[in-house]
Structures are given as structure tokens and as C-alpha cells.
Nucleic acid binder design. Structure first.
Ligand SMILES: [Zn+2]
Ligand SMILES: [Zn+2]
Ligand SMILES: [Zn+2]
Ligand SMILES: [Zn+2]
Lengths: 146, 146
DNA sequence: AACCTTACTGATAATAATTATCATTATCAT
DNA sequence: ATGATAATGATAATTATTATCAGTAAGGTT
């Protein structure tokens, strides 16, 4: 992230805090700066560890509180690493995508993923990345619940 | 899941345990049955809570151990709910997909998702679900790392 | 069917992550 | 500059996960 983009993001976030009645405090700024300048996703613990290098680092509780606030404001988002999460279901044979009802939790497997494969080939050309894995999960309302 | 499908999955899993030198024990069977008959993703804690209704329920440690084994055998997979995970990054404006390097962690935003929107429209027609949200994350190797 | 080896278990302690509590402090509108 | 109070740090409490270890049960052998 280039310097002006970085500064702009910080300003954007500070404005968002103001506009929503939150105070712009040192601990919050420290967390925000760490997030804004990182090129990789960070866990709360990692953010806290990084903050320890600063002058008067925030307490761990403030790191969590700040993240909750930023999440409420829609300024951050969760990254779901393939290794990370908790809920478990029987494995689907081969690579299929899952469709989960946000009302009843019912889950079904979606057939046919040529469209996605095509999309990924395009991404590879566009970015030079070699895409090895993907996570696609669809959330919605099933026929029962609607 | 219909009864024969259910029985078949149980048998499949028992066979997999045998073939990989694992013993088919009561605690493992209890966890396996709970997983096989659930229509919704479950957390380890939820599985444990459900097991408490059984005759001689497994200890919580055995629940975790069984899940680790099933994961090693590729019989279960993680579900990443939008609310669930830990790593955090600045939010991307609008809905974009993320491409994350599994080597250095570098992350970039992928432009253009018409292909995915089209795919989702197809899914909606096919399933009757009303898809409200989706999670698509691509994992691979960036140009630097390859 | 009884025996034997040892993988597996339950109970519990240890570790790690997250949230709650509360007296003190720093922000910011006035 | 002042004052009301939102926010903080320190710490306790809670929750989730992993490690330890003596006792148990699975399953091959006889
Ligand atoms: Zn996740
Ligand atoms: Zn439903
Ligand atoms: Zn796919
Ligand atoms: Zn890389």
C-alpha cells in the first residue's frame, strides 16, 4: 500500500469513528495503523504482539474492543483460512460447493462448478497467481424457510 | 439423509478406519453417528453436547481426538461461517474476492465477479434457495513466491 | 471363547483465546 | 480550561483446546 493510500485509509477510518460517535483514542489509532499497513491478514493476538513494539502499547482488551468496533462499522472483515474454523460436517466427495441456509442451518451440496473453474483460470491469467485451492460457500434461505 | 444413505456413510467411515489401522471404538462411533445424521454443521462443543444424551457419552477429549482423526482421513471438512474466524484485514469496498498467497500470506483483491454472479443465479434456479451472501476466497502462490 | 498386546479412553491438568469487571484516565464538546 | 463520560489498563473469569497418564477395551491370535 503506497503512503498516500495508507494515509487516506487512516483518515477515512478516523472520520468513520467520529461520525459514529466513537472517540479517536491512541489505542484505537495504534490498532488501526497496524491493520492499515499490514499486507497480510492478522489475528487479534498477532495485532497485539505487533503493538508491543510501540511506545505505550494498548492492552489486549483494547485490541479486542477496537476490532469489535471496526467490525460493527464494517471496516474490517474476517478471513476464513482453510485450516481455521470450527464447525464441522461430513466431507463431500470431490470438490463441491456448499449452500447453507442461514435460517435453519440446512446445508446442501451444489452440483456443477465449471463456471467457477473458468473464473479461476481468468484470475490466474490476470494476476500471475497460481491458484491451488478455493473456498466458496453460499449462504441464503432455503425453500422451507422462505 | 435417508436411512440407507446414512447406513452407507457409517459403513464407509468404519471401513476407512479399519483400512487405516484405526480401531472402531464406541466413542468414535458415537461421534460419527452424530455427524452423519446431522443436517447442519456442528462445532466440537455442539457434538459433545449432543453426545451427552447418549448412554455412555464420550469424554470431550475423545470428541476432539475423533474429529482430528476424521480430518486426517479427509472424512470431514471445515465450514467457514462469515462470523466465525479470527484473522482480520481492512475491509474491501463493495463485494470483492480475495486471493491469498499460502506461502507469504500476501493478499490481493480480485476484480470482476460477473462470472460468479452468473453461477449463483444458476444455483438459485437449480435449488430454490435464495442466495443472499457468499464467501469466495482463493488460495495459491503469488508471482514472488513461485 | 479366552488371552494378550497396545491403541484408545476418561478424568483432569495445563494452555490459549476471549470476554467481563471496575477503578482510573483521556477525549472532546462546551 | 473545564467537566461529563466514553474508553482504558489490569486483572479476573470464562471458554475452547490440548497434553498427561493410569486404566480399559478392541481385535488379532490361539
Ligand atoms: Zn472460517
Ligand atoms: Zn432453511
Ligand atoms: Zn469450487
Ligand atoms: Zn507469496
Amino acid at each position: 500500500m503506497t503512503a498516500p493510500d495508507y494515509d487516506q485509509r487512516i483518515e477515512h477510518w478516523k472520520t468513520a469513528l467520529h461520525q459514529n460517535g466513537y472517540r479517536v483514542t491512541q489505542p484505537r489509532l495504534q490498532v488501526i495503523r497496524i491493520l492499515a499497513e499490514s499486507e497480510i491478514p492478522l489475528t487479534p493476538q498477532e495485532i497485539y504482539q505487533l503493538s508491543l513494539g510501540l511506545d505505550s502499547p494498548p492492552g489486549i482488551a483494547s485490541v479486542y474492543r477496537t476490532l469489535e468496533m471496526l467490525d460493527d462499522l464494517g471496516l474490517i472483515q474476517q478471513i476464513h483460512q482453510p485450516s481455521g474454523c470450527h464447525a464441522i460436517c461430513p466431507a463431500v466427495e470431490g470438490h463441491k460447493h456448499l449452500l447453507i441456509c442461514t435460517s435453519c442451518g440446512q446445508m446442501r451440496v451444489v452440483e456443477g462448478n465449471e463456471a467457477v473453474s473458468e473464473y479461476i483460470r481468468m484470475i490466474e491469467e490476470q494476476t500471475g497467481y497460481q491458484v491451488e485451492e478455493h473456498l466458496l460457500q453460499l449462504f441464503g434461505i432455503c425453500q422451507n424457510c422462505s
